[in-house]
């Protein structure tokens, strides 16, 4: 039997959840015995396989049209989609931008900040993704499993990967469940 394929990607997050994945340390050797780790933002392959993977893991929430594209692409190409970390599950810290709205946030960043001078202006290159309300992943695509945490423990991530590899849906509860 071929090993299940796993792909990850990140959107509006701080990369902390991927650091937490790496925190499984030498257990990664056990993981790659059980799964075929395909693409991730921190390895060579960046895009999930066009012909699909078994498990897709997304870190970060959705804050612009590019993130929407990434999320939709992952959803299309994987069977089981995991939202990893508070940003992906809830919206997380970036979601605080929803209080003031995109315009005010852009203004503050590019024009009104203490480090801006009079030439500060909001970038308007048409190739840039359009910013939207910050959303949790499940507001845009259906999610199969949520693993909250900021970041989730490496132990929990290792447990989840092993469970999935062995064909079971991991149960995130009791000491594996925390939102902080």
């Amino acid at each position: 039997m071929t090993k299940p394929k796993v792909a990850t990607d990140w959107m509006c997050g701080c990369a902390g959840c991927h650091m937490s994945i790496l925190d499984i340390d030498e257990r990664i050797l056990k993981v790659v015995e059980l799964v075929d780790l395909r693409s991730s933002p921190i390895t060579d392959l960046k895009e999930p396989d066009k012909d699909g993977v078994t498990v897709g893991i997304l870190e970060g929430g959705i804050n612009n049209t590019h993130n929407e594209h990434v999320a939709k692409r992952m959803r299309e190409r994987c069977k089981i989609l995991i939202a990893l970390g508070d940003c992906a599950v809830f919206g997380g810290v970036p979601a605080m931008r929803n209080f003031c709205g995109v315009d005010a946030a852009l203004k503050r960043a590019y024009i009104e900040a203490e480090s801006n001078d009079e030439d500060g202006k909001i970038p308007s290159n048409p190739e840039l993704a359009e910013m939207t309300r910050v959303r949790a992943v499940h507001e845009v695509v259906p999610v199969d499993l949520h693993i909250p945490g900021c970041p989730p423990d490496a132990d929990v991530i290792f447990y989840a990967l092993v469970e999935l590899a062995e064909g079971r849906i991991p149960e995130i509860k009791d000491d594996k469940l925390h939102w902080h």
């Binding site: 599950v89 509860k173 469940l177």
Partner: peptide, 10 residues
Amino acid sequence: RAYDEGMTHW
């Protein structure tokens, strides 16, 4: 209480 009910998301 959310943990007790096993809530992983909203």
